[in-house]
C-alpha cells in the first residue's frame, strides 16, 4: 500500500502497514495443513536424495514462523506470520527467559490463554510450561533449510544432542509440540508432531543428509 511507503533507506523492511498481520503469505498458505507421510518418500530410490526430501518435508515445520519466531538471530523474538519483532519489545536474557523484570512469564503462562473481548487480531496469548527462546547458537531466522540442517547435526549448535536425542526432541518435546497447538488466532504448523517426528526419524535413518546450503 503506497500510503505507508517510507524513507528509502529501510524500505525493504517496511513496505506496508497491516498486510500480513493476519494473513499468511500465499506460499505458506498452500499445503499449510498437512505433511506427506514417510511412506510416500519410498519411491525415491536414492537414499541420499530420499533423506534430503524427507528433511525438506520436515522443513515445512522447521521454517514455519511458529517455529522460527522463537529461534531468532537477534536478541529479540519475532511474532506473527509476518515475523515482525515482538511487541512489547522483549529480549533474550538469561536462558532465553527474558530480561529481569520483563521475563516471558510476565505475560505468557503454562498454557495458551484466551483474550476475551479485545483485539480481533489478538485472540490468545500463547503459552507453554517451557516457554522460552532457543539459544542464539540455534538461531534459524534468516537461514536456509540447508544451513539449519547442518546446524541440527552440529552438537556445538544443537544443545549437545546426539541424533537419537534430536529425534526424540523433535518427536516428543512439549514446547516443540506447541507449534501444532498454538492457540486461538494462530495458524498451526503443518501435520502433527507424530508425523513430523517420523519424518525426522526417517531422515536420521537415511543418513541425515542435508539440502544444499
Amino acid at each position: 500500500m503506497k500510503i505507508t511507503l517510507l524513507f528509502s533507506g529501510i524500505a525493504v523492511n517496511c513496505l506496508v502497514v497491516g498486510v500480513g498481520i493476519m494473513l499468511a503469505p500465499a506460499s505458506k498458505a498452500q499445503n499449510a495443513g498437512s505433511l506427506r507421510p514417510v511412506e510416500s518418500f519410498q519411491s525415491i530410490s536414492d537414499k541420499r536424495a530420499r533423506s534430503v526430501a524427507l528433511f525438506e518435508e520436515a522443513g515445512k515445520v522447521i521454517q514455519h514462523p511458529r517455529c522460527v519466531n522463537c529461534h531468532p538471530a537477534t536478541e529479540r523474538p519475532l511474532q506473527g506470520m509476518s515475523m515482525r519483532p515482538h511487541q512489547p519489545p522483549v529480549f533474550r536474557g538469561d536462558a532465553g527467559m527474558g530480561l529481569v523484570g520483563m521475563q516471558c512469564n510476565t505475560c505468557h503462562s503454562e498454557q495458551n490463554t484466551p483474550v476475551v473481548g479485545q483485539a480481533d487480531t489478538l485472540k490468545s496469548i500463547p503459552g507453554n510450561p517451557a516457554w522460552h527462546l532457543a539459544p542464539i547458537e540455534m538461531a534459524w531466522e534468516g537461514k536456509t533449510l540447508g544451513q539449519i540442517c547442518e546446524q541440527l547435526k552440529d552438537q556445538k549448535r544443537n544443545g549437545e544432542k546426539t541424533m537419537a536425542e534430536m529425534v526424540e526432541h523433535m518427536a516428543h518435546d512439549e514446547l516443540v509440540g506447541w507449534g501444532w497447538q498454538p492457540g486461538d488466532g494462530r495458524e498451526p504448523v503443518p501435520g502433527t508432531q507424530e508425523e513430523f517426528g517420523k519424518l525426522i526419524q526417517a531422515w536420521a535413518d537415511t543418513g541425515a543428509a542435508c539440502p544444499s546450503p
Binding site: Q87, P88, G101, M102, Q103, N105, T106, C107, S109, T113, P114, V115, G117, Q118, A119, L122, I125
Partner: peptide, 23 residues
Amino acid sequence: GVAQCGACTVHLDGMPRRSCITP
C-alpha cells in the same frame, strides 16, 4: 487488555505479571 501497556501490572507470587491476561 492485551498485555501491551502494563497499566494492570501486579506481583503474582513475587513476580511482575499483567493481570489483564491472567484468568
